[in-house]
């Protein structure tokens, strides 16, 4: 109890920018520190991030690698990347903790590869880049809420291209059937029949998953 109190004391010499009750900042606080670092190169926001994440990264890395030296290297490299990449963080795309986690994971992966495979290829970006940035694409879609159901989106993705085109024009661009016919340069009857086929397939797809 005594020990717990001791480390929860505010750190001397560090201005408290946010009205914090404890050292356990909420998610929006972490995100706003990242934004301050990214936009204003704010050192005290970085210090806040450091004090929150560094012991946690150390803890995770120590149990993963079983080496204090490696765990320290992961902390140093991860925190360096946070400082250099914070402007790439977008709170609309995901949580601060997830973003920091992916940086730590990539640092650990590349570090292990340097040690065990003697490779300096920093492969992590090629392996995870398209997944870590994927939320950006889906959040750009209008009417996203109507299609939030993953099964449905999945079903649409798996439609033949001509049916998919018609369905997406209707859902995403909110076009009428005759507008779709005009846009795609196909007869209205074709639009109707493609829609009907697509809907049958989607129902089948969703029904299948829920049976």
């Amino acid at each position: 109890m005594h020990a717990e109190r001791a480390i929860r004391l505010p750190k001397a010499g560090h201005p408290i920018k946010f009205n914090r009750m404890s050292d356990d900042p909420c998610k929006t606080e972490l995100a706003s520190w990242l934004e301050l670092v990214g936009i204003e190169r704010d050192k005290s926001a970085f210090t806040d991030l450091f004090r929150y994440f560094a012991p946690r990264i150390y803890h995770i890395s120590l149990s993963k690698f079983g080496s204090e030296t490696l765990a320290n290297d992961v902390v140093q490299e991860t925190m360096t990347n946070i400082w250099r990449k914070a402007h790439l963080f977008d709170s609309a795309k995901g949580q601060a903790t997830t973003w920091v986690y992916t940086i730590m994971r990539n640092v650990s992966f590349d570090m292990l590869r340097r040690i065990s495979a003697n490779k300096e290829d920093n492969l992590s970006d090629d392996l995870w880049g398209h997944i870590d940035n994927a939320e950006e694409d889906s959040s750009l879609e209008p009417f996203r809420d109507h299609l939030a159901d993953r099964e449905l989106q999945n079903g649409i993705d798996n439609l033949p291209d001509d049916q998919k085109q018609v369905v997406e024009s209707m859902f995403y661009q909110d076009l009428s059937q005759s507008q779709i016919a005009e846009k795609l340069g196909i007869p209205l009857g074709t639009v109707k029949s493609r829609l009907r086929l697509a809907m049958t397939k989607l129902k089948h797809h969703i029904g299948e998953k829920h049976d």
């Binding site: 050192k43 970085f46 210090t47 925190m79 360096t80 400082w83 250099r84």
Partner: peptide, 8 residues
């Protein structure tokens, strides 16, 4: 460490 990182 913080000092060193933020110098960059």
């Amino acid at each position: 460490m913080i000092e060193q990182i933020t110098k960059d």
